Amino acid sequence: MAKPLVGIVMGSDSDLKIMRDAANILAEFGIESEVIISSAHRVPEKTAQYARTAEERGLEVIIAGAGMAAHLPGVIAAHTPLPVIGVPIKSGALEGVDALYAIVQMPPGIPVATVAVNGAKNAGILAAQIIAAKYPEIREKIKEYKAKMEREVEAKAAKLAELGIEGYLNNGS
């Protein structure tokens, strides 16, 4: 088994349904990941230790998902030189906007790249793009992925042009 290059961390198992999107897209690119639950508030020392040892364990990027107070990505970023990508999780009264603000508004010196609320798939793609700077074979897979997306959009555009709005919508698309 290849060594994981990306760590995927979440504070609660309730985040797993969202965060699996990051693991799935990384797997599509052939990138191994490790997935753990580690709360910045409930197990702060475990979380700090995970971040402090990530580089020596061979990780190159960490994706951290958090809802509400959303301290997990910032705490991890404070303890590692690796790039950290934060995924705000939709939860609570503010539906993830509080998490988005908490993650994106990091103090100078502790950057956390931030994706959209529940944007774990984009976090996985961004992690792959970061890693692709070092691994040309991953860069090629990303190029293929983007070319596939382009083909899919062009096929939909052609179908719309052929069927018109109502025909397209009534055709199960």
Rank of each mutant, 00 (worst) to 15 (best):
Y135R: 12
P108C: 07
I25A: 12
V87H: 00
A22T: 06
S39A: 03
S12E: 10
I142Y: 09
E152M: 13
K148T: 14
N118K: 03
K156H: 14
G86V: 06
N122T: 07
S39L: 01
G65Q: 09
V43N: 10
K121T: 07
V97C: 03
I130Y: 14
Y135L: 03
E154W: 04
I18H: 05
E152P: 05
M19C: 10
A66H: 03
I125T: 14
A2Y: 14
H41F: 06
V112R: 00
I89G: 08
K17S: 14
L82V: 05
S33V: 07
G92S: 12
Q129D: 13
A123Q: 04
A113Q: 03
E162H: 09
K90R: 08
A123I: 08
R52E: 15
G65T: 04
L26V: 13
G92I: 04
T80N: 12
V153Q: 14
L169P: 05
G109P: 15
A157S: 11
V117E: 05
K146E: 15
Y50I: 10
M1H: 15
V115W: 12
H71R: 01
A70G: 02
T80W: 09
P4D: 13
N170K: 15
L169G: 02
I85K: 00
R52P: 04
S38I: 11
A120D: 08
M106H: 06
P136G: 08
I165C: 13
P83I: 05
G167V: 08
P4T: 10
A27W: 14
A127L: 09
A133T: 11
E95Q: 14
K143V: 13
S38D: 08
G172C: 11
V61D: 09
P44W: 04
I110L: 06
A69T: 01
D21N: 11
I85N: 03
V153C: 11
V97S: 07
H79W: 11
T47G: 05
A22E: 05
G67I: 10
T53W: 09
I131E: 03
A102M: 04
E56S: 09
N170M: 12
K121W: 09
E150A: 11
Q49V: 12
E140F: 02
P136A: 10
Q105R: 01
A66D: 02
H71D: 05
L82D: 02
A133M: 15
M106S: 06
E34F: 03
L82R: 04
V43W: 01
G86M: 00
A66K: 04
D13Q: 04
E56I: 02
A155D: 15
A93H: 14
M106D: 00
Y101N: 00
